[in-house]
């Protein structure tokens, strides 16, 4: 059996969303099973199945160093703080 990750796209502008996974012996069986298990009540109008072994994975260790770089976040707070300080200095 292979494991497939199931993605559904609802009508309209929303993109594909991961909704779960499914086990099946081959692609065709995965399709018919996914249809009953995930789209029985018209939850989506398009379906993607991705064989789990085909997924390229970036794990937590790989991503962690980027979690601590506030200087890359341009939320304007540093500039605002600096301006506030300058304004107060001028008083």
């Amino acid at each position: 059996m292979r494991t497939y990750e199931v993605f559904l796209k609802p009508d309209g502008r929303d993109g594909f969303r991961h909704v779960g996974s499914i086990e099946a012996a081959n692609d065709e069986l995965a399709l018919v099973m996914a249809r009953e298990n995930y789209v029985r009540r018209a939850e989506g109008s398009r379906l993607w199945l991705v064989d789990r072994t085909q997924i390229v994975i970036g794990d937590e260790d790989f991503l962690a160093p980027n979690a601590d770089k506030p200087h890359r976040h341009n939320d304007g707070r540093m500039v605002a703080d600096r301006r506030r300080r300058l304004r107060e200095d001028r008083k």
Binding site: I22, E23, V32, M33, E36, N37, R40
Partner: peptide, 12 residues
Amino acid sequence: PFLEEDLALASI
């Protein structure tokens, strides 16, 4: 025999 088939048959 397996969960997915259980749901599929009931739905059919």
